[in-house]
Design a protein around this nucleic acid. Structure first.
Lengths: 241, 241
DNA sequence: CCAAAAGTGTTTGTAATACACCCATGG
DNA sequence: CCATGGGTGTATTACAAACACTTTTGG
């Protein structure tokens, strides 16, 4: 794919040169879950026409990276974390979506467990905030559109793939997992049915530990068993509930 | 979104100007179904390094259009048709995916019923061909990747949304519909179960006509009842089978 | 011993699967 | 009247949904 002749390069460099080029950006909907609420990391817009509005975290694509790499870079820059779960969602390209020129943006969402460290982020960076998903009403640019699309894809994926674990600590209780599903999907789930479902899917590992520091019967802790999951991945099963 | 002050324009035009820009293209996986096979419209690559290979139909994004419009334009140009079912699938942006320079491409798939008119297309345009999906092994650029992703999304969507009808004529028999599911998903379906399922979903309209020109009992013709479908769309139901 | 949440089974309805014969038409 | 594919029903099984009480711990 890289050993083109000089001839070819000349021919097409010119072809592409006369073509319209656009800036390409990546926008990340960074979902954080703090055991009660699903939140999204937002940054105060630095554009005069969008002052007082917040926007998603993003950046322009660089010459030596693809959009996945760009998204990883944006995540690392703002959260300090790498290896986060991440999905490309959709590309937005309306002609006037960006007031400063033509910018086509590729949207990603990613998932992170909102611990104290991450909550603290916003104290050092006053332009950042974790906004509850249910409180998001208005964003700069077309970012409300982008956000809605990403939220939809997250909800969809949560029913079909074991991605929810990315929003929880390594070890968690069944109640925490159920709460996650209830909060993110905005539904109520019967405790017994939920537990039976999880038992039948059989992708959790009993870590033989209990919750601590609770003033009632402590719950057992589990972790997601990636290995067991991949071994049964072939048969399509649904997380539907 | 369009009344920026001069100040803003100056400030950011310069900001965007110094940024890296890339060409943006749209690539369409145009699926055609001829009652026996699912096929894809391909065009012989005009690039020396990919001679003898075929590629998807695509074009570079123009200044005054978004990628949806660009895809519609590509579809119209090569099939002469408009209003085809179409979905954005994914964006591919690897640095070296295009030998002539940096081109980020947005992939779409679309669905069309392959009638004689469309089959004939390829006689007037010797560079075009309808290739059976099962025969596609190698394509120019990263188009095999693009194609595979689009096929996957088509199969996925077929199980969840009533999009199959876009591959059939307005009026069709239940057998034709079943064949479509079997061929596209590459599975076998029990005739009685299939028919019961469709009856329960209740989105077909009996057009009170029969097949003609068959040397056996003619089958009843149905059409997809869009209105009835949208009226029950709220409850999520699955085309799963 | 009390408060609080953890943990557990059964019943009922609904949808998926497997399976075989009669019917209507053209030739 | 025969060949061809169209059209139909039932029994079984698996899964989803609804629902209430006992157990364990901390204070």
């Amino acid at each position: 794919m890289a050993n083109n002749t000089n001839e070819t390069i000349e021919e097409t460099t010119s072809l592409l040169d006369i073509q319209f080029n656009a800036a390409i950006s990546v926008d990340c909907v960074i979902f954080g879950y703090d055991k009660h609420n699903l939140k999204v990391l937002l940054v105060k817009s630095d554009m005069p026409m969008y002052k007082d509005k917040y926007s998603l975290l993003g950046d322009l694509l660089k010459q030596d990276e693809n959009t996945d790499q760009s998204a990883i870079r944006v995540l690392a820059k703002h959260t300090g974390l790498s290896g986060l779960y991440m999905e490309q969602v959709c590309t937005f390209s309306n002609v006037n979506r960006h007031p400063l020129g033509r910018v086509v943006t590729v949207a990603y969402y990613s998932l992170v467990q909102l611990n104290e460290g991450l909550e603290e982020l916003v104290h050092h960076h006053p332009d950042l905030k974790w906004e509850k998903v249910s409180d998001i009403e208005d964003l700069a640019f077309d970012h409300l559109l982008v956000f809605n699309k990403c939220l939809k894809q997250l909800r969809y994926g949560l029913r079909e793939k074991p991605i929810g674990f990315n929003l929880l600590p390594e070890k968690f209780t069944l109640k925490q997992l159920q709460n996650l599903y209830e909060r993110v999907l905005d539904i109520e789930i019967d405790k017994r049915n939920f537990r039976r479902k999880l038992k039948s899917i059989d992708i959790l590992m009993d870590v033989n530990e209990n919750e601590t520091d609770v003033s009632h019967r402590p719950a057992k802790l589990y972790s997601f068993d990636k290995i067991r999951y991949s071994s049964k991945k072939k048969k399509r099963f649904s997380f539907e509930m």
